[in-house]
Design a protein around this nucleic acid. Sequence first.
DNA 1: GTCTATAAGCCGATAGAC
DNA 2: GTCTATCGGCTTATAGAC
Lengths: 201, 201
Amino acid sequence: MARKVGSVGSVTAEAILTEGCKLFARFGYAAVSMRQIAAAVGVQASAIYQHYPNKQEILVAILNAHMDALLKAWDDEVCDEDAAAALERFVRFHIRYHISRPDEVFLSYMELRSLEDQGFRIIERKRHTYESVAKTILRHGTEDGTFSVSDPHVAAMAILAMLTGVNTWYRSDGRLSQQKIEELYIGMVMGSVGLTAAPKE
Amino acid sequence: MARKVGSVGSVTAEAILTEGCKLFARFGYAAVSMRQIAAAVGVQASAIYQHYPNKQEILVAILNAHMDALLKAWDDEVCDEDAAAALERFVRFHIRYHISRPDEVFLSYMELRSLEDQGFRIIERKRHTYESVAKTILRHGTEDGTFSVSDPHVAAMAILAMLTGVNTWYRSDGRLSQQKIEELYIGMVMGSVGLTAAPKE
DNA sequence: GTCTATAAGCCGATAGAC
DNA sequence: GTCTATCGGCTTATAGAC
């Protein structure tokens, strides 16, 4: 298991995040020891401190990377279109992205409480930025008369919770394909903002 | 702090659940020590073992009591009515009940992973029973033509996630009254199952 | 960059006095 | 029913060899 010779630091640093994410999601931040993470990576616990100053910074790095990747992925996807098409695109994007990273998603919802002051503020702000994506789509669609929404903020929070909830029951070998799930949720989301028919089909 | 004389065991047993719930919700099950719980109750750690055989059983007792109270509260509320009225009643009930017990709700979603085999199965089953309440309302309403729902199971999970999500942002001193929140969510839920107008107003 | 060894302290749980 | 005292084990983090 020793990798003393020929080991590459950046590989270890990356593996610490990958294995830490899996373990934190499975057992909870507080329940996972540095020894457990080290064992999963294939090094001794003390080697971790070459890459992260303490356990807390591992969690911060995982959540930061997740939020940055999420925001970047949406930036790559977004384009100019009407409100209904934008909402449909967002629903598909959110479901697809969140289903593909269940551990990171679970962590970023459940372990915010394990973050200390500065890390908490940074992650919370990035989360808020992502929530604003949904809120902005809903506000624009409401202002131009496409949607019938009383409170865009509440509607955004409701829709985000609904979509993220897929992760609690989705199984890749389950009854429904990802495509089918996207369509079911698009139907419900569109209905919830006052649109009766799906924009396509 | 000692209560050696005149202490009543059942009061301590109850306080352990109350304080344990607060602490577990705030810091996570694994991060809370028996000493912390004991300090919050006002006894020494060893006194806890008079009431619960170990830490795990405290968590099980908290979650069991929560699920039993939730199912009982719905049983007291339910009555014979049409599907739209039943769904509206359920939405109001779920929001009201969950807002009033944020710690228990957070725990029952986040610390399922901290439960060992038997406790997990018991709690999971009670959760499933509660999910069936929503599912049954949606299935009946779909069968009699009230709702337009493609998949009652997915719709139930989506609606439950949306409603439970209120707890992530609700503040009792916030912009919106509980009454107003219920109405906003009823509007969105009704829309998501294909009903355009609210049954009242 | 990773190792071994270790410091200093908290953990869950138990024994026995009152 | 609660206390004090304690056991063995595991924790985060550091020091110094290679």
